[in-house]
Design a protein around this nucleic acid. Structure first.
Lengths: 206, 206
DNA sequence: GTTCACATGTAACAGGTTACATGATTGG
DNA sequence: CCAATCATGTAACCTGTTACATGTGAAC
């Protein structure tokens, strides 16, 4: 699904500016399963306007200039409906965090624990946000989507709380094994890192 | 996280060809939280080779030619470790399916039900796959990642089974309301669609 | 004999991100 | 007065996808 369809979907629920659309998509009710940045939204709206699927009015807000309030046109509603009849693509779930967990034996146990705690905190925060959103919401679709996100967040929290410590323990084990092999005494580890590390520092960036 | 890091992570667990890496990333144990295609992996491996982070040997397999078996180098291990110490990006969850649910009142209830059933079937299939993978796996990180995926799949299945019918019912309601407003008698719906639809057909593609 | 799985790679292209550029208003 | 929020937009860049091009061996 492209950004244009996303914009149409958001505008289906009510008029909005590009700024507001981005906010809804990255902080609001839509944020749990879509993504959008300014650089993607503004061009999308321009093109939707050219195609006649949306239109805008300049709102003479209190002093705030250049507020383009977009609305979906009848043609836009039809295009949206059509898009919704194309088979949805498979859900995409990308998790660098899980990748880190998978590679638990290449990082220190302390780092791993910190990452797990941080993720847990994020999930908690997100859950609270969704819980609040679920309250003032009576639209069936939104309710469904929020509750779905809530159910997944709940599951993630439960899992991490139950199994996180276990993973950290195994990382701790790997760590001490590594230390035992590389250097019977302490301190030699850093040396091993710099030895071959010269070429690889930040090699994976850009 | 870029594809190069992904390749390093996979090679950390053992040597593999580009073909195998893609398979692991899109069907194997890694597939639940990463994504990669041939067009991304082969260039990534070429560059990793140039950077000295991986190396390859031509395997003279039984008749099969040109099998480049890649392995991670010591410098590669260090780069991987370094990459794992960068704070992981937030998980990305994109779901066209949930977007469809959100817009339940613009599609027909039958279509919605079909989509939900299909998604349910996909989740079931994926769960079975993960269940099988969890069996022959004793590595703590992999076990953790698989069980995480399993927990989320379970939660999604439970939710969809419990709440799917409800959403379909509300779509059904919206549908009949729409029919009542647009055309008291049946059959006029298609006409409404084509009326303004001319310009919007496939307008959202490309 | 043809389809499937294995196997590698390239090139065009689309799509989106990041950073930049700009400016008003509000609240601490 | 400075930071944050509101508000719009552009351009360079990166990254990855899709489709193409090619070839082998095994199984049906």
């Amino acid at each position: 699904m492209n950004i244009r369809t996303l914009c149409l979907g958001i505008l289906h629920f009510g008029d909005a500016t590009g700024y507001e659309i981005r906010k809804l998509a990255s902080e609001g009710d839509f944020s749990h399963f879509v993504e959008a940045s300014f650089g993607a939204i503004y061009p999308a709206l321009t093109r939707l306007t050219a195609d006649g699927l949306v239109a805008w009015d300049l709102a003479a807000g209190e002093g705030k200039p250049n507020r383009k309030v977009y609305r979906i046109t009848p043609a836009g509603r039809i295009a949206l409906r059509e898009a919704m009849y194309e088979p949805p693509r498979a859900d995409i779930f990308k998790s660098e965090f899980l990748f880190l967990c998978l590679l638990c034996d290449v990082v220190g146990a302390d780092h791993l624990r910190e990452m797990i705690d941080r993720r847990l905190a994020q999930h908690h925060a997100e859950r609270d946000r969704m819980l609040a959103a679920a309250q003032d919401c009576d639209h069936p679709g939104s309710q469904f989507a929020i509750d779905y996100g809530l159910a997944l967040a709940e599951a993630a929290i439960t899992f991490l709380e139950r199994r996180g410590a276990e993973l950290v323990a195994s990382a701790r084990r790997a760590e001490s094994e590594r230390a035992a092999v590389v250097s019977p005494s302490d301190g030699a580890h850093a040396a091993t890192t710099t030895e071959t590390g010269q070429a690889s520092v930040t090699a994976l960036r850009n």
